[in-house]
Nucleic acid binder design. Structure first.
Ligand SMILES: NC(=O)c1ccc[n+]([C@@H]2O[C@H](COP(=O)([O-])OP(=O)(O)OC[C@H]3O[C@@H](n4cnc5c(N)ncnc54)[C@H](O)[C@@H]3O)[C@@H](O)[C@H]2O)c1
Ligand SMILES: NC(=O)c1ccc[n+]([C@@H]2O[C@H](COP(=O)([O-])OP(=O)(O)OC[C@H]3O[C@@H](n4cnc5c(N)ncnc54)[C@H](O)[C@@H]3O)[C@@H](O)[C@H]2O)c1
Lengths: 235, 235
DNA sequence: AATAAATAGTGACATAAGTCACAATATCTC
DNA sequence: GAGATATTGTGACTTATGTCACTATTTATT
């Protein structure tokens, strides 16, 4: 009964990150219970997710190194992939400077910016080139991942160029959904949308809190303070 | 039959962003069909999501301004919220400089960094202060949102300080899940995990492609090129 | 005024995701 | 080496999410 579902795959990176931290702490094993506490999910969900890796050992838990290895392999992190970045603005530079991505198998080979003043700059070891060169270099170097960090109104155009140059996957930071052919993978990292969600939940919490104050006639500001753990939001 | 679900609320920001673009283009109405095309989802899902807003007009679609207004209200964007940012590194600076957030009702009032050399800097109109001042200022100014852009190993400590100072919501960019009391909302913006997902799907696509090449004995490199639209990944 | 056409709203259904409870099993202790 | 115990793996169940097909409504057209 292999339940290789989307929701599960979304959690695998989190297990991986936890395992990584455990490894650094010299931990040998970690239980589903422990995973669950760190991730605010149900232990049985962890077990269900990891059962497909066939790596759990009864009474001990999951061996840190082996499980990490398996997840890394499943997620395709073993072989480093090269990517081109479009847009060397403040977010683009942050990505260039971010060493964490190498650890997960991503290497930003070059960046491209429409602003001629930015050409020649080097950030985090990554050189910025003129935007015009993107298409040609991408197809000639056979780069299959494109990262989009340009303003929303030019994002679709950049995506089209990347796809035309052979991109198979696009990591998009512009706050919009891109239109691409069916064989191209897009992952939208819509941070603004993420904030709106936070804003919504905060609003909900606040109104619930004031409701209970209303109901119980003041003197209950602490109400909800010890409320049931609601878990964290992401995904 | 009010289906006010999590999954739906996650899509509302996307509808909002599309409506915003439509407004700028002077569009008056937008149909569920149109929404669906832009978001790569089923039109009936759009209708179900928006039905709770009671704003759709038959034969015309959804009125852009009114619907945007309703969503903005539901998401709690009408009243601007102030936030403190911890970590004025490359990502933190990008957030300070990002004007897009104001549009959605978020104002970063001040930033805090443990590195004394960074104190006094101003990025995007936001001043960087010494990290020691965070707790005191946060509780005195009654700021309820904290943004975490510090390295993963200090993130939990910063979160604890924020919660102690009265934070009710945390927007976390460190690649880990934070432990907070049940009344505090956390949104994890785990970009590294996002990349791993992209990597996984790319790997899947590549292996499926090579499979079909194997099966049909070469000469079919184009196979999958016109594959069924798989929609985009986010959330 | 009648008709056509587009499009929202929705009940019934299908699939995905998560929870519970418990059996199976590996390790540890004495 | 026998028994206790922690912990995995999983079938049955519950809840959430998405899809389909159809009805109702509004506007445009003749
Ligand atoms: N800065 C943030 O923290 C942040 C947060 C969330 C989302 N985003 C999104 O990320 C994107 C970039 O944001 P930013 O703050 O870095 O903006 P920015 O204005 O600092 O940088 C954008 C860069 O893209 C370049 N550019 C424009 N058109 C281009 C093209 N066709 N080809 C190549 N380069 C081009 C510009 O010259 C500029 O250097 C935007 O879509 C923004 O909405 C940014
Ligand atoms: N840069 C990126 O593109 C990127 C992408 C994804 C995730 N992240 C995550 O975001 C976080 C920040 O990344 P970054 O690239 O900006 O790192 P960075 O090293 O450039 O910046 C981190 C900043 O935090 C400060 N800091 C450390 N401890 C602190 C404390 N206790 N209080 C206040 N400030 C403190 C440091 O002085 C530094 O200025 C990290 O967790 C990283 O994994 C970054």
């Amino acid at each position: 009964m292999q339940r290789l579902e989307v929701a599960m795959v979304k959690r695998l990176p989190q297990y991986y990150q936890i395992l990584n931290k455990m490894k650094q702490h010299g931990q040998e094993y970690i239980s589903s219970e422990h995973f669950a506490r760190l991730l605010n999910v149900d232990p049985s969900l962890v077990r269900r997710d990891l059962s497909c890796l066939a790596t759990g050992i009864q009474k001990l838990g999951y061996p840190v190194r082996l499980t990490m290895e398996r997840i890394g392999q499943l997620l395709g992190m073993r072989n480093t992939k090269e990517a081109f970045l479009a847009g060397a603005g403040s977010l683009g530079r942050a990505l260039m400077a971010y060493s964490g991505l190498k650890e997960y198998g991503l290497k930003i080979t070059a960046a491209f910016d429409a602003d001629p003043a930015k050409a020649g700059e080097i950030v985090g070891g990554v050189k910025v080139l003129p935007a015009e060169k993107l298409a040609d270099l991408m197809s000639r170097m056979n780069i299959s991942i494109g990262i989009i960090a340009v303003p929303a109104d030019t994002a679709q155009g950049v995506a089209d160029v990347m796809v035309g140059a052979g991109a198979l996957a696009i990591w998009n930071f512009a706050p919009m959904t891109l239109q691409v052919p069916g064989n191209v993978i897009v992952r939208n990292e819509n941070l603004a949308a993420g904030y709106m969600l936070l804003s919504y939940e905060l609003e909900q919490n606040l109104s619930r809190r004031s409701e209970s104050i209303d109901e119980k006639h003041v003197n209950e500001q602490a109400a909800g303070e010890q409320a049931l753990p609601q878990g964290e939001r992401n995904t």
